[in-house]
C-alpha cells in the first residue's frame, strides 16, 4: 500500500504539487492523468525520492520514501531515457539491472523470453547500443527492465507515448496481466485517457498539482474524463 500524506512540492513560491491525502491499496492499477505541468512526473519523482518534498511524505509499503532506501528492493520504475545506460546493449543492460536486483542470468533470460513478442525482434541480438535505438525501442527496453526481479510496485511514466499501435496493444496486455496479480501495484501516468481507462481500475486526474478527480473505472469513466478535459 502506498500512502501519501500532506505532500507538497514548491519551487520558490510556485506550488507544483499539493496532495493532502491519497491511498493506493496493494494490487491496484492506478492511472494518473492530467495536462502538461499537472504534476504527474513530479509525483512519480517524489515517489522515487528523486526530488525532495517541501512538506509531508510518501509511505511505500511501510517504508518512508525520503528517509529509508528499502523501498528500492521492491520498486521498479521507468520515467524517461535517463534510466537507460546508453553505451550498453539491451542484453547487457538487462543483466546489469538483474545483477543489482539479485537475479542471475537464467532468471533474466526467462523473463526476456516471456516478453519476446513485445520486443518484436527489434531489441535482442541486434548488437546495437541503447543510445542508437529509436525512442520507441528505448521505451520497450526501459519498461521490461522495470519488471526484472518481480517488483511489487511498478511505476511507468507515459509508457504509451512513442510506441507504435501494435506495441501499445501488447503493452496494454502486459499491464493488465500485472494488474491481475494481487501482489503487484501498477502506477501509470498518461495523456491518453482511452489507454489509461482501459488498463487501470482507478484513475486520478491532476490539475495544477491538485487532485481534481478520483474515480474507480466504470463504463462511464471515459465520458466523465473527456467531459472534464473538454475545451
Amino acid at each position: 500500500m502506498i500512502q501519501v500524506n500532506n505532500l507538497t512540492k514548491k519551487y520558490n513560491a510556485t506550488t507544483v504539487l499539493n496532495i493532502q491525502e491519497l491511498e493506493i491499496p496493494k494490487g491496484q492499477s492506478f492511472g494518473l492523468v492530467g495536462n502538461n505541468g499537472a504534476g504527474k512526473t513530479t509525483f512519480f519523482s517524489l515517489l522515487l525520492d528523486l526530488i525532495e518534498p517541501t512538506t509531508g511524505g510518501i509511505i511505500n509499503h511501510n517504508v518512508v520514501v525520503n528517509t529509508s532506501e528499502n523501498w528500492k528492493n521492491f520498486t521498479g520504475a521507468f520515467l524517461d531515457e535517463s534510466f537507460l545506460i546508453g553505451y550498453l546493449t539491451a542484453e547487457e543492460y538487462f543483466y546489469f539491472i538483474g545483477e543489482l536486483r539479485g537475479q542471475n542470468k537464467a532468471d533474466v533470460d526467462a523473463l526476456l523470453k516471456k516478453y519476446e513478442e513485445f520486443f518484436n525482434n527489434e531489441i535482442l541480438n541486434t548488437k546495437k547500443y541503447l543510445r542508437d535505438l529509436s525512442k520507441g525501442n528505448m521505451k520497450k527496453v526501459g519498461i521490461i527492465a522495470t519488471l526484472i526481479g518481480n517488483p511489487e510496485v511498478v511505476i511507468l511514466d507515459e509508457p504509451f507515448a512513442n510506441l507504435d499501435p501494435t506495441t501499445v496493444n501488447r503493452l496494454k496486455k502486459i499491464v493488465k496481466e500485472l494488474a491481475e496479480n494481487p501482489d503487484v501495484t501498477v502506477l501509470i501516468s498518461s495523456h491518453d485517457l482511452l489507454h489509461t481507462v482501459e488498463v487501470c481500475n482507478r484513475i486520478v486526474a491532476l490539475n495544477k498539482g491538485e487532485v481534481v478527480k478520483d474515480i474507480n473505472t466504470s463504463e462511464e469513466t471515459l465520458k466523465e474524463l473527456e467531459a472534464f478535459f473538454a475545451v
Binding site: 522515487l48 525520492d49 528523486l50 528499502n70 545506460i85 546508453g86
Partner: peptide
C-alpha cells in the same frame, strides 16, 4: 550522470 536517476532508484 546521464543515467544517475536509474542508479538512484536501484538498491545499490
Amino acid at each position: 550522470s546521464s543515467y544517475y536517476q536509474l542508479m538512484m532508484t536501484q538498491s545499490i
